[in-house]
Design a protein around this nucleic acid. Structure first.
Lengths: 355, 355
DNA sequence: AGTTAGCACTCTAGATATCAGACTGCCAGC
DNA sequence: GCTGGCAGTCTGATATCTAGAGTGCTAACT
């Protein structure tokens, strides 16, 4: 929507920009419409409220502000917020003490993905005072490191697939007739030899007679290996770690229980996230989505600050926060940025060259 | 609370019971206080509304009902609901067609735990029209089936532990100096020989000189094996699959966004569940918790219908639904009961004797 | 004793009215 | 181009009223 309304750098006068910034900063705090008088007091401008009223009218005309009703103050529109984050807001770095604390927390943890994800979501939520979201890193065309087949009982065995990046997937496999561990070991040895260090694409399209010539049980296992590897490559879509949902739901814009429910459903059903996150994955740097920009009017009142993290082309995920449009963007951005870089480093350690 | 108020079978006359049943059934539908007139119309009783009023007063006196305010109808108290589910409600079985459909859905699935959990939560939510909750089965003192150490790069290796029940746990392990795959393989072979088929308790308390005499890296790996096995035994506490939260949040009792938020936080923070679920695990059959019975007044308006499932002493979990106290108990119970039994069977298939 | 009709009484939810307060928009003068 | 002043508008809070639903009680009935 609103593809024609851009926020060019010189559409606004300096004073208008100052007014817009003051207004948004104040609105973020109070959640109440801001009037000309308030802005006069808050801003450094030395003009009367009447002048500010004129400017407010102009800003409204241009689409940066709106009035809930005649004779209330103004509140920012999506366009207003967008201008704010792109031009008016001053970027801040996360304070060094906080950086240290976060680093400390991460390095105290056992090196396990799900712990990292949980902590990441928690830290994001805490630092940005909004809801933290993290997807596990999604491997890109990852290679098979090792596979193992273990007999659980007569006709049930467990297939374990370890990928180059340390990702482990398993699946139970029910056979028609009983298979003993020796047979399974033989199969896994054979397949290991054939498939090791190959990506799922290579395996699928293999014309190696030893691969195409597999039979029965072996072929069955192979199919499952492929399935598991595909799963691993798509991991992003399924699991999303989150934390601090209550930070958002506490906000006054969500006293209306309908909006409230919309958000909960948004996160429960995930259709929105599954659509948006892949776009972020292919971008670089912090991306901001305000009020359902890009065709999602349904979630007018929420904004996302998201960033990809990880190693492009090898394994990457998305992390960020979700908050009301009226959120502390500067704080959120600095948190997201810092943590994304932190994760970059952690992943670089894990994935460092080892071919 | 209210330890002295029991719901003995003959505290109420037949007519009072009929009135209480009618009232609750109607209240479940309408969510509005029920008056004497409504009950007269709805019940099969051939008495005047004045008589019913007398009985209602008596029921209120006994603690089964309450009035939101003078001159409104009555609504059930926790005690009223409890009496309803224990004595008044008629149990129903899940219709056979639905049973078939559910079975079909389960058997169409790949045999993987997380898929089962997801489906279980979804089916529970759908059949009971409330929120479905499932914890993964928690193994009890499970035994080591196999362990594997795989080099990821110089100083990083991946430890994979497979338990008797097919549960797989992994962890990354960072060593001080580089270790190659050969060394790792030797270690895992040695440990496999030593630890296979042992439970975590046996391993921890082992006095076998070969175990106590392990050194350096081996001991390090052993420590992690123990850690992972302990993790597996405690799995219940962490992950909870859920679905259909919106079924609950849609209910009129939660238009108040405070109550609304309480529920969301209840499920997000999990402290309540982590306290209640273990109790269920040790019970047998369907357990019903109404309005925070047992010291959780905070969640006055929600009820749980929960059941343990799985194989006692080997691996079991908890599944059930959460809804408003004003929920369709009969429907919920039949769904929970059926699905718990279904899971029992699935698990029996997986765990069938294989020593 | 148990049941019932009748009636006065109570309390709520919703509608209507009123009013102070907060802003705006505009005009005329600086 | 800016500003003070002022009329006009809209909200939100508060008060008042009313219809309706439902109770509790009493006195009569079986």
């Amino acid at each position: 929507m609103a593809g024609n309304e851009s926020t060019t750098r010189d559409e606004l006068t300096l004073r208008q920009r100052e007014i817009l910034r003051t207004l948004i900063q104040s609105y973020v705090d109070t959640a109440a419409p801001i009037g000309s008088h308030t802005i006069q007091k808050l801003s450094a401008l030395d003009v009367s409220s009447a002048t500010i009223r004129n400017e407010l009218a102009a800003l409204e005309e241009l689409g940066y502000l709106e009035q809930p009703h005649t004779s209330a103050g103004r509140i920012p529109t999506v366009k207003g917020y967008r201008c704010f984050v792109e031009q008016l807001m001053q970027q801040v770095e996360l304070p060094v003490v906080e950086q240290r604390m976060i680093n400390h927390q991460f390095h105290q943890l056992r090196p396990a993905w799900d712990q990292w994800m949980r902590l990441t979501a928690a830290v994001l939520a805490h630092k940005s005072e909004a809801a933290g979201l993290v997807t596990p890193p999604r491997a890109f065309n990852s290679r098979l490191k090792h596979l193992e087949t273990i007999s659980i009982r007569d006709t049930v065995c467990l297939l374990i697939v370890v990928l180059q990046d340390g990702n482990v997937r398993q699946e139970m496999l029910v056979t028609e007739s009983a298979v003993d561990q020796d047979t399974l070991s033989r199969i896994s040895n054979k397949l290991n030899a054939l498939l090791r260090n190959r990506s799922v694409r290579e395996i699928e399209s293999s014309t190696n007679p030893e691969v195409t010539g597999l039979q029965d049980l072996e072929r069955d296992v192979l199919q499952h290996v492929i399935y598991l590897m595909q799963q691993a490559d798509q991991r992003t879509l399924r699991e999303i770690y989150r934390d601090g949902l209550d930070n958002v739901l506490r906000q006054p814009e969500f006293v209306d229980s309908d909006k409230f429910r919309q958000i909960v459903e948004l996160l429960e059903h995930r259709t929105f996230l599954e659509e948006v996150l892949p776009r972020i994955l292919n971008a670089s740097g912090v991306q901001i989505i305000i009020g359902g920009e890009g065709g999602h009017e349904a979630i007018e009142d929420v904004a996302f600050v998201l960033s990809p993290y990880g190693i492009k082309g090898q394994a990457s995920g998305v992390l960020g926060v979700m908050g009301p449009t009226r959120m502390q963007y500067a704080r959120a951005i600095s948190a997201v940025q810092y943590i994304a870089r932190l994760m970059d480093n952690l992943m670089a350690e894990m994935y460092a060259t080892n071919t």
